[in-house]
């Protein structure tokens, strides 16, 4: 399996619960409600974003991390972009709109543990630039139920980008 599609699909109840969770999470990030967003993470969160090396197809895909955070370093990153005194890249704030789609939820064999694959498209507009930019990729999330609510325990975002556009990635994907 290449990590893009699950071997066995979950039942509908799990699918709906995960879909609601991802939609709510996207709304929190678009609304820059980082305090609430941090509440959706487990204490042992791993958050990884990769880009792709362009190379001959017969040699297979090669991804490399451009973000690789644990709870500690992710907390620093989020504090920086959420405090106007501590960021220039996000002050004025960039405008973002996240589209989460093509969800597939794996049957992980445990009701308190879901593995969700989804497509992510983030429109991002910076300053007064008339044209926005897009980040596109495939997410693989491990969601765990903690105290009755789903939390993100592991997120891998495999971006469909080689050379990143326009400066540095300063938002959460």
């Amino acid at each position: 399996m290449n990590g893009e599609a699950p071997a066995k699909a979950s039942d509908d109840a799990a699918f709906v619960e995960v879909l609601r969770f991802l939609h709510r999470e996207a709304a929190l990030l678009d609304g820059r409600d980082y305090a609430a967003w941090l509440g959706l993470l487990t204490g042992d969160i791993r958050y990884v974003v990769t880009a792709r090396v362009s190379r001959p197809a017969e040699q297979g895909p090669l991804d490399y991390a451009i973000v690789d955070e644990d709870a500690d370093t992710l907390g620093l990153r989020v504090r920086q972009i959420s405090d106007p005194k501590l960021t220039w890249a996000e002050n004025p704030a960039t405008l973002t709109r996240r589209f989460v789609s093509n969800l597939e939820v794996e049957d992980a064999g445990a009701p308190n543990h879901h593995v969700a694959h989804s497509n992510l498209l983030v429109y991002r507009q910076r300053g007064t630039a008339p044209d926005g930019d897009f980040y596109a990729g495939r997410r693989r999330d491990v969601l765990r139920r903690v105290d009755g609510s789903l939390r993100i325990a592991d997120r891998l975002v495999r971006l469909d980008h080689n050379v990143l556009f326009d400066g540095s990635l300063s938002v959460i994907l």
Partner: peptide
């Protein structure tokens, strides 16, 4: 990890420099 956390395509130093 720490190297590109600070200086890289999503570096916390980088993002403010580039803007």
């Amino acid at each position: 990890r720490h190297g590109f956390h600070n200086f890289g395509a999503a570096g916390v130093f980088e993002q403010d420099d580039l803007e």
